[in-house]
């Protein structure tokens, strides 16, 4: 059965495939001309795209705005850094980061999921600030200076090995991981559980009447989002060789929310495009003027006013029309976005 939700997800996948093709072209061109900076900048953009993806899972699907998602990004980064300094193993670092993030997210989730709406946003913001301040003051974690000296590791994939210091190789590794996180999220949303999340966003009060636990759905969504953020964060010290408490600050969380809104809330792939777009804007305009934040702010306001569904929300209906089977194509109302369809069901 092909409904509108599946159709819009497929359109997102087409756009995700486009992003992968663009990334591969960049990788080929980059390695041909021996570039380092742009490939590593793109790698960083992809890492922050993972954080944005986690914000979009929460905001776009369960409707919960997290203003402190950088907390789990930072926990992943610090765990990975600590492991790498003891044992330079990629898989051990990723595993430890996932485990640590999961444990912390259970604690954070138990606190944050007691409330909803604006209070959820405030609690997540507060949690991240508290932990960031604690890390900022712990000398064994490098305190306000952060930790340097994280070695350049070799990543063993079966019989092959890629150095994190190789710009093209590490870029491709990060690309694979972020796209795998994207695919896993898309799969999760396609399961019956994913439909419960969509229902939650549309009308939370009706969900219990259908026999589903609201709390459990929100908690699972929170844990999944935290894991995505933690795994993305675990890649950061491999790229840059250091971690610092700024990774957990509101600036990082806020940038992820901006990426999602620019790219398109509730589109998944929009988070990836939004993040890449934001990094490019920051780097290009930031080298030209100190006041690039004004430009990002103006772009953000223009985006919210003129493209309320973001970059991808703007492009996706056209893609949907191209790939839709005939019976859906004729009844398609262009300004309606599929995940919001459920809102038509009034209580």
């Amino acid at each position: 059965m092909l409904d509108r939700l599946t159709l819009s997800m497929r359109a997102s996948h087409v756009l995700a495939a486009l992003l992968v093709v663009a990334a591969l072209v960049l990788a080929v061109v980059g390695s041909a001309i021996g570039d380092t900076f742009y490939l590593r900048l793109a790698t960083e953009a992809l890492i922050f795209a993972g954080l944005a993806l986690s914000v979009d899972l929460l905001l776009g699907y369960s409707g919960a705005l997290s203003l402190g998602q950088a907390l789990y990004f930072g926990i992943g980064a610090y765990t990975s850094a600590l492991v790498l300094m003891k044992v330079p193993s990629f898989w051990l670092a990723m595993g430890a980061a996932a485990g640590m993030t999961f444990v912390c997210a259970i604690i954070g989730g138990l606190i944050a999921n007691r409330v909803r709406g604006v209070y959820f946003a405030l609690i997540t913001f507060g949690l991240a600030q508290v932990v960031a301040k604690v890390v900022y003051n712990i000398r064994d974690l490098g305190a306000s200076d952060g930790m340097i000296g994280i070695p350049v590791i070799d990543i063993g994939i079966g019989p092959f090995s890629v150095s994190a210091g190789n710009p093209v190789g590490f870029f491709l590794v990060v690309l694979v991981i972020i796209m795998a996180l994207y695919a896993a999220t898309a799969y999760l949303l396609d399961t019956p559980f994913g439909r419960v999340l969509t229902a939650l966003k549309a009308n939370e009060k009706r969900v219990p009447f259908l026999g589903y636990s609201v709390w459990r759905a929100r908690m699972v969504c929170y844990l999944a989002a935290a894991l995505i953020a933690g795994l993305s964060g675990a890649l950061y010290p491999m790229l840059r060789g250091f971690v610092s408490p700024e990774l957990m600050f509101f600036m990082t969380s806020g940038n992820a929310v901006i990426s999602v809104i620019l790219g398109g809330v509730g589109t998944l792939v929009g988070a990836l495009y939004g993040s890449v777009f934001l990094v490019i804007i920051k780097s290009v305009i930031g080298s030209w003027t100190d006041h690039y934040l004004i430009i990002i702010g103006l772009l953000f306001m223009a985006g919210v006013l003129f493209m309320p569904k973001g970059l991808i929300g703007f492009v996706r209906p056209h893609v949907e029309r191209m790939i839709a089977p005939r019976h859906l194509r004729e009844t398609r109302a262009p300004e309606q976005d599929a995940p919001l369809k459920a809102e038509e069901v009034k209580p």
Binding site: D35, T36, F37, L41, F242, S244, E246, S283, G286, S287
Partner: peptide
């Protein structure tokens, strides 16, 4: 000249541009 933004993350990105580009 590039802006450090008073954070290591931004400083490293800018420094890499200066070294590489």
């Amino acid at each position: 000249v590039e802006d450090e933004e008073t954070t290591p993350a931004a400083a490293v990105q800018k420094a890499e541009k200066l070294f590489q580009v």
